[in-house]
Simulated scan of single mutants.
Amino acid sequence: MAAEAHSTATLRLTVGDLRIVHPISVPSGPVAAADVVPALQGLVNAVVAAAEAGLMKSGGTISCRKGCGACCRQLVPVSRTEGERLLALIAAMPPERRETLHARFAAAGAIITGAALAERGGRSDRELSLAYFALGIPCPFLEDESCSIHTERPLVCREYLVTSPAELCAGRAQEGVTPVAVPKVSMSARGLQDDREDWFPLALLMDWARTRPKGGARRTGPEWIQRFLKGIGRK
């Protein structure tokens, strides 16, 4: 079976105050949007790395470490495209692993629904986030206070780093927490397929899966990347 053809290019972007030069490779032919998520992960990683380098140059230090999972109890907004990628990831896991994750998602969904947080309900993003964080719901992928799908973690998770003491991250009001100024490139994925803001909390992945849009456009890899880059320009 012939290997799928790929298109490779070097992206040169200005994102905020950052200058990004990043090689990218995507399928040349028509694919689903979820198939270019690895390329988007690489691009977000490059933006984060540039922000980290700037921080270190100014003498700053990132306090995030493996085993500190306080941020894994925050509301994590996931785009439709990333949701489709995560569902495929779970479907490819061994049966026992899938069952464990499904049980965790069900438990998290029940708590969120019981607290009437499944819908925005007129709340601002901060109000919704603080109310969610107060529930203390661990991400279904969190194990031993570390992400069990670290290489496949959502784009927004990659963008969240802090310089403040780790213990402050567990505070209910997040007082004193100092995030690194990373441009939120991940937001461009929300309108990648439908040209509108489209996201849901990661913990409701399985609830979303039951009503999610079926099908979807197929575009070449370069076309998907162009749509993503245009979205960055609109944010």
Rank of each mutant, 00 (worst) to 15 (best):
residue 154 P to T: 02
residue 154 P to A: 00
residue 154 P to H: 00
residue 154 P to M: 07
residue 154 P to R: 01
residue 155 L to G: 08
residue 155 L to S: 10
residue 155 L to K: 02
residue 155 L to D: 00
residue 155 L to M: 07
residue 155 L to T: 01
residue 156 V to P: 01
residue 156 V to K: 03
residue 157 C to M: 10
residue 157 C to T: 03
residue 157 C to L: 09
residue 157 C to I: 06
residue 158 R to W: 09
residue 158 R to Q: 11
residue 158 R to H: 10
residue 159 E to H: 06
residue 160 Y to M: 15
residue 160 Y to T: 10
residue 160 Y to D: 03
residue 160 Y to L: 11
residue 161 L to I: 07
residue 161 L to K: 12
residue 161 L to N: 11
residue 161 L to F: 05
residue 161 L to P: 02
residue 161 L to V: 08
residue 162 V to H: 11
residue 162 V to K: 06
residue 162 V to L: 07
residue 162 V to E: 12
residue 162 V to S: 12
residue 164 S to D: 10
residue 164 S to L: 06
residue 164 S to M: 03
residue 164 S to T: 13
residue 165 P to F: 04
residue 165 P to H: 06
residue 165 P to D: 05
residue 165 P to Y: 04
residue 166 A to Y: 09
residue 166 A to Q: 14
residue 167 E to F: 11
residue 167 E to S: 11
residue 168 L to G: 05
residue 168 L to I: 04
residue 168 L to V: 07
residue 169 C to N: 06
residue 169 C to T: 10
residue 169 C to M: 08
residue 169 C to Q: 06
residue 169 C to D: 01
residue 169 C to K: 08
residue 169 C to R: 01
residue 170 A to V: 05
residue 170 A to R: 14
residue 170 A to F: 11
residue 171 G to S: 12
residue 171 G to V: 04
residue 171 G to A: 11
residue 171 G to K: 01
residue 171 G to N: 14
residue 172 R to D: 10
residue 172 R to G: 10
residue 172 R to I: 12
residue 173 A to V: 05
residue 173 A to S: 13
residue 173 A to K: 15
residue 173 A to T: 13
residue 174 Q to S: 14
residue 174 Q to T: 05
residue 174 Q to K: 15
residue 175 E to F: 13
residue 175 E to W: 08
residue 176 G to Y: 09
residue 176 G to K: 03
residue 176 G to I: 08
residue 176 G to T: 07
residue 176 G to Q: 02
residue 176 G to V: 08
residue 176 G to R: 06
residue 177 V to M: 09
residue 177 V to C: 09
residue 177 V to Y: 07
residue 177 V to E: 04
residue 177 V to D: 02
residue 177 V to R: 04
residue 179 P to Y: 12
residue 179 P to C: 15
residue 179 P to E: 06
residue 179 P to V: 11
residue 179 P to W: 06
residue 179 P to Q: 14
residue 180 V to G: 01
residue 180 V to M: 13
residue 181 A to H: 14
residue 181 A to T: 14
residue 181 A to F: 11
residue 181 A to I: 09
residue 182 V to E: 03
residue 182 V to D: 08
residue 183 P to K: 04
residue 184 K to W: 01
residue 184 K to S: 12
residue 184 K to D: 03
residue 184 K to Q: 13
residue 185 V to D: 00
residue 185 V to P: 03
residue 185 V to C: 08
residue 185 V to L: 08
residue 186 S to D: 01
residue 186 S to T: 00
residue 186 S to P: 05
residue 186 S to Y: 02
residue 186 S to R: 00
residue 187 M to N: 12
residue 187 M to S: 09
residue 187 M to D: 09
residue 187 M to R: 13
residue 188 S to P: 00
residue 188 S to M: 07
residue 188 S to I: 02
residue 189 A to M: 12
residue 190 R to Q: 13
residue 191 G to V: 00
residue 191 G to Q: 09
residue 192 L to H: 04
residue 192 L to W: 06
residue 194 D to W: 05
residue 195 D to I: 01
residue 196 R to H: 14
residue 196 R to A: 12
residue 196 R to I: 10
residue 196 R to E: 15
residue 196 R to N: 09
residue 197 E to P: 06
residue 197 E to K: 01
residue 197 E to Q: 08
